[in-house]
Design a protein around this nucleic acid. Structure first.
Lengths: 330, 330
DNA sequence: TTGAAAGCGCTAACAT
DNA sequence: ATGTTAGCGCTTTCAA
């Protein structure tokens, strides 16, 4: 019952010209092939009249390319990735590319299989914020020759990357506190071995060593009761300065601090790495490092576009600066 | 340089059989076509050996279907839609479908053009949380014959829908307050004419009329200074009970209430429609209506699957219940 | 029990 | 200046 879509051939027949001519004209190669202006006009008019729409799949099959970029993200429901995803998708769309988004749930095996799937679909390029160690990914990456750009989480020196310098940005933080910290406690999300978190830890640690500040890290459990206990213990151990290592670990810590009646910034100081819309509304509003999400997205797509169009050279790392948002807790 | 992918033909040649035979076997129709067990085994082994991967586009072209569902969402960076998107994508993937996500930014024109784009790509079905009025969408929907399921925001009686009964759920809320409200103020996000918000308003209004409670609605500006003013004015007008009509309007109101030193739930009561992860960590934690996001996603995909596979009948509305999360502000 | 061949809609090399 | 034609890789009807 489905009314058949107009095809190139329909237009060609209606006008008594060849498919090739129609194809040229409709792909704006009319002049290049010296098709007469009049005929071009006619063809375009007829295409409109029959509401012709090119068949994407026939085109892809013929050309061997799909105009689609695969986007591999750890968790699309995390505010950071949701925003990044939106930006990347929009920019790609502006360039005429479609985005095929897959979600790995930060699971290494899922990621590997999804990546293979994507490659099998003849995508033209892949943008990835990897959950796996780069070493695990190399075999998969080797099996294809499409450009790959890493975003947020780096690969190695051979792979393109757009993101921030987590170590440096985290290290700079200890100078922002209004009171010199005695002991800094970094709060890591549960089970997080991803490089971004590890780099942030190492940055803070190094800075603390130099400034002669005591330093410790704890990993937060999902259970709030547990978080409360941990924070109480650390408070007793002299921690007076807290840095949440990502947006997910912020709220539980603030809640625990509130529970023990510790006032911020009078008794202790707090900074969140990775800002969140809600932070500005807290009481007091939470000081945070804003990751340049839009810029990361823009640059990632720009780099992908370069790789797609011109450059064969790879391994470029684009590092963007963060911004410290001074609010009421630092 | 790109190593050519193994094709059906490669396998056929290597084994000296026809493409057809290989195709049958690899699509598990070997028995149906009485291909000998031995040959089937051979073919499958060779396919594995050459790491054969079917060409998605050739298949789509030939079959005229793409195994892809278009998903049209207003704003993928909004927590509610991010979560919904994730669920729908996962379920669709489980069923062997791919999801093509597009983001309309709640802009009516963008939505219309993106929908047309999607249809042009020969998607097999479309799931949409529309920004446009259904009347605007009808011409576009008419131009195709693929199944369409509306999610979160309904179309009309002729279109499938999965979501909640906003009017009813909002109406029930007024019974939840621990103190009988004198005057309820509903807080709408800036410029929101979408039906979900309108239905929530009308539900509360009706319930207030019956219970003889004063009721008013205000639309919140982006600017917090403005929100503060509005809330102050309404406080002076006797508002003692606040209902945020979506998750975006919650934080600004809480911040304003804090600013004026109004304590919750002692002085005023507050409920948010649409829960958010951060609400549990606020002080006091925010009472909220939890939308059944996962269930909406599951049912949307299930319904789409039905439409794709069996049913020609449409216009089914699946209404799911919400859950009121009692925390500290109501 | 298997193979041959047509054709999905498009592009581009080659003719004319 | 425009037409002819050969596939891209796959499925499926028909023939053997």
């Amino acid at each position: 019952m489905k009314a058949k879509r107009t095809s190139l051939n329909d237009i060609a027949k209606a006008l008594n010209v060849s498919k090739a001519t129609v194809s040229f004209v409709l792909n704006d190669k009319g002049d290049q092939f010296n098709i007469s202006k009049e005929k071009q006009r006619l063809i375009k008019a007829k295409a409109k009249e029959l509401s012709y729409v090119p068949n994407f799949f026939a085109k892809s099959l013929r050309q061997g390319s799909t105009n689609t970029i695969g986007l591999v993200l750890p968790d699309i429901s995390n505010a950071f990735y949701a925003e990044l995803c939106k930006t990347i998708q929009e920019r790609l769309y502006d360039q005429g590319y479609n985005t095929f988004i897959v979600n790995t749930n930060d699971d290494a095996e899922t990621e590997k299989s999804l990546m293979s799937e994507l490659i099998q679909r003849s995508i033209d390029g892949m943008i990835i914020a990897p959950s796996n160690d780069i070493k695990e990914l190399i075999p998969i990456l080797r099996s294809t020759h499409i450009p790959v750009v890493f975003t947020d989480r780096p690969g190695d020196d051979e792979t393109d990357f757009v993101g921030i310098n987590n170590e440096e940005e985290a290290g700079k933080l200890i100078e922002e506190f209004t009171v010199k910290p005695k002991k800094i406690l970094a709060l890591a999300p549960h089970f997080s071995s991803v490089t971004t978190i590890q780099d942030r830890i190492s940055g803070i640690k190094k800075a603390c060593d130099i400034a002669d500040i005591e330093f410790d890290v704890v990993s937060l459990e999902k259970d709030q009761g547990n978080v409360n206990e941990v924070i109480e213990k650390e408070l007793n151990n002299g921690a007076d300065t807290f840095i949440a290592l990502n947006n997910q670990s912020t709220m539980p810590v603030i809640a625990a601090l509130n529970k023990w009646g510790v006032s911020i910034p009078e008794h202790v100081r707090f900074i969140a790495f990775d800002d969140n819309a809600s932070f500005a509304y807290m009481n007091p509003p939470i000081s945070a490092v804003r990751l340049p999400i839009t810029e990361i997205g823009d640059n990632t797509v720009a780099r992908m576009y370069e790789r797609l169009k011109e450059t064969k050279e790879y391994g470029k790392h684009i590092i963007l600066p963060c911004e410290f948002i001074k609010r009421g807790t630092h």
